[in-house]
């Protein structure tokens, strides 16, 4: 059992290069997200995969998808202000809808009608988040109703995890050459890492998302595992300063 998620993460990391911030980080992130959606739609039992990046307040910032239909369904949720991805973001949990046709008509009336009319029967939305740090949501669409199997759910969660890592690294200017193994931990269940995130937020006076990115950037620059850096922060041996990159 213990290996299964590690395997999922390894599978997803193998499928995707790291973001290579070569100049225009925003453009590089968009390119990377497009590749991620294409890789995910192939790896998962899905007919479409879309990703929406949102601001703290849930306003859509960037949307990418494996195809134009998925893209329009993703952005439609923000036009309408309703849909599984909007709920996943605001409720901090996956919103899994194996049969859109069976959804109560009051839940997302306009979105459900539009999705069904587009031939989508099931949608599974996973928040891109680490604790209270929220970046957006990943949507998996299927043309047939039915549950996403446990292994497919695990793989979708791994795609969400790797997307979070890629976004943080783009923000923290972590080089594409960074060894992913050395940075494991942002979603790895090491509570010291989460505590260090909260501490770094206070030390730098920045948002939680920025603190996550800065910690990863520091670990990469110092060529040290994130967990070791986090331990130093929590045990008082290290305090990031506003001018350290």
């Amino acid at each position: 059992m213990g290996e299964s998620h590690q395997d999922d993460l390894a599978v997803v990391r193998d499928l995707l290069p790291r973001v290579a911030p070569a100049g225009d980080v925003a453009a590089d992130v968009r390119t990377w997200l497009g590749r991620m959606c294409s890789a995910a739609v192939t790896a998962l039992p899905a007919t479409g995969v879309g990703v929406s990046l949102m601001t703290d307040t849930g306003v859509l910032a960037v949307a990418k998808a494996s195809d134009t239909l998925t893209d329009s369904l993703g952005t439609l949720q923000f036009t309408l202000g309703e849909g599984p991805c909007v709920d996943a973001f605001h409720e901090h949990r996956p919103v899994l809808v194996p049969d859109l046709g069976a959804v109560a008509s009051t839940r997302w009336p306009a979105y459900t009608a539009a999705a069904l009319a587009s031939g989508v029967q099931a949608v599974f939305s996973f928040p891109l988040q680490v604790g209270a740090a929220r970046l957006g949501a990943l949507d998996v669409y299927r043309a047939e109703a039915g549950e996403l199997s446990a292994p497919a759910t695990g793989l979708a969660l791994a795609f969400a995890d790797v997307t979070v890592e890629a976004l943080l690294d783009a923000q923290g200017a972590v080089s594409a050459a960074a060894e992913p193994g050395g940075l494991d931990g942002v979603v790895d269940g090491h509570y010291v890492v989460y505590q260090a995130q909260g501490m770094t937020m206070v030390d730098l006076g920045v948002s939680l998302v920025d603190a996550l990115a800065r910690l990863r950037g520091h670990a990469y620059a110092a060529d040290r595992p994130l967990l070791d850096v986090a331990r130093d922060v929590v045990e008082g041996r290290l305090r990031l300063e506003p001018d350290t990159a």
Partner: peptide, 12 residues
């Protein structure tokens, strides 16, 4: 995870 992050922020 949220609680661990908040513990860190409060501790600092």
């Amino acid at each position: 995870v949220v609680i661990e992050q908040a513990k860190g922020a409060l501790a600092r």
